[in-house]
């Protein structure tokens, strides 16, 4: 597993993230990239409070993250970067490198969304964005670390009803 994990999860920090990623890989640094949470002290406290003791969290806006992220800082220890949506992942696509494991973990079902897996539902616009990211980097659907990951080679097929 690569040391830098970018995870799209619209529930941000929840049970699967804690047990399935943070505890599994003994990750002690989480970067939560979300404009809304970064601007709300109560939300920051809520998400910080849920982490296991000893786990450090940085809550950054998208712009702050883009400006400060350097992949060469994370050679030894794991770092988990949590994003809320495919749109957010798309906005930071230019800083994704070969050192980064890009993982779509959980995107809830909403109207007009297509079921990609039992935890990932994307609309056509999001699928097109993932396709664009896929041109340069591998993108996986991976709920928790101990379950197999699925690399969707061609998201366009989903739009035609195929996986």
């Amino acid at each position: 597993m690569k040391k830098i994990i970018f995870r799209v999860d619209d529930r941000l920090i929840h049970g699967q993230v804690i047990e399935g990623w943070i505890k599994h890989f003994k990750i002690n640094h989480i970067i939560l990239v979300n404009d809304r949470v970064a601007s709300n002290p109560l939300q920051k406290m809520i998400y910080s409070s849920t982490l296991p003791p000893g786990t450090e969290i940085s809550v950054l806006t998208l712009d702050e993250f883009i400006a400060s992220f350097r992949s060469d800082r994370y050679k030894k220890d794991y770092v988990l970067v949590i994003l809320e949506s495919v749109d957010d992942l798309y906005k930071i696509k230019n800083i994704i490198s070969d050192d980064v494991y890009v993982n779509i973990g959980c995107v809830a079902s909403r109207e007009h969304k297509i079921e990609v897996s039992n935890t990932v539902f994307l609309n056509p616009e999001e699928i097109n964005k993932v396709c664009e990211i896929r041109e340069k980097h591998e993108v996986f659907i991976h709920k928790v670390a101990w379950e197999p990951s699925v690399e969707i080679k061609n998201f366009h097929n989903i739009l035609e009803g195929n996986l």
């Binding site: 529930r11 049970g15 296991p52």
Partner: peptide
């Protein structure tokens, strides 16, 4: 929504694991 995630994290770690 905010507390759904937080309590999911708390509950899974404590009750299930």
């Amino acid at each position: 929504k905010t507390y759904s995630s937080a309590f999911g994290a708390f509950g899974d770690s404590f009750f299930w694991h």
